[in-house]
């Protein structure tokens, strides 16, 4: 069964009051939703709260989901909107250190290299955090999630040209910030 159809079947069950069907959807998308929120906020606690808030909001408003796009696109949209609102509300330039709760996969064995790697991650995160929320969302979806521009535009509710323009500006800023590493 294709993913979209499988999701729609679960959505129908949720609409008819089956809470377990929703839990199945949560199980399926929890990591992706969490990472979207995490990469935009660079904070584990915020990402945890925001991802859960996104699921709750999706559960509450699933009746308005018209199945014109895939369930995941719809869920992404909710998550991105909640995260952008959070960033607008609590500021985007908070002082940054890599979250203690976050581990870097494939950490090198040598402590020296580990420290260097962490520093590089901190610089990347700092550069991303300096971007406005909407550009950050484009970086997350188009570069990190590697979604086509059309789908990014669908998620963000804007035109493809806007996505391209935001991505162009974001890349330019990131190159300036990370010129030492490129």
């Amino acid at each position: 069964m294709p993913i979209a159809r499988e999701d729609f079947a679960l959505v129908k069950k949720v609409k008819s009051g089956d809470k377990n069907a929703f839990c199945e959807l949560v199980e399926k998308y929890k990591e992706r939703v969490y990472f979207v929120a995490y990469r935009m906020t660079s904070n584990h606690a915020d990402a945890d709260d925001l991802s859960q808030e996104a699921f709750i909001k999706a559960y509450q408003s699933i009746g308005s989901f018209r199945e014109k796009s895939s369930f995941f696109t719809w869920l992404y949209r909710i998550t991105i909107n909640i995260t952008i609102n959070h960033l607008k509300k609590f500021g985007r330039n908070r002082p940054f250190e890599l979250d203690e709760n976050i581990r870097i996969a494939n950490d090198p064995d040598s402590p020296e290299k580990t420290a260097q790697r962490r520093e590089l991650h901190e610089q990347i995160t700092k550069a991303i955090n300096s971007l406005p929320p909407k550009e950050r969302a484009v970086v997350e979806l188009a570069i990190l999630e590697d979604l086509p521009h059309k789908q990014v535009a669908q998620i963000l509710g804007c035109m493809e040209k806007t996505v391209s323009w935001r991505l162009f500006r974001a890349r330019k800023k990131l190159k300036e910030k990370l010129s030492l590493y490129v």
Partner: peptide, 26 residues
């Protein structure tokens, strides 16, 4: 090059047990 550098963010992961408790919390 810049995309490759940015994609290093994909290596950042939450604690291992985090997703195990996620569903229960939710």
């Amino acid at each position: 090059e810049i995309d490759k550098l940015i994609k290093l963010k994909l290596e950042e992961k939450p604690p291992k047990e985090y997703f195990e408790n996620y569903r229960r919390n939710l």
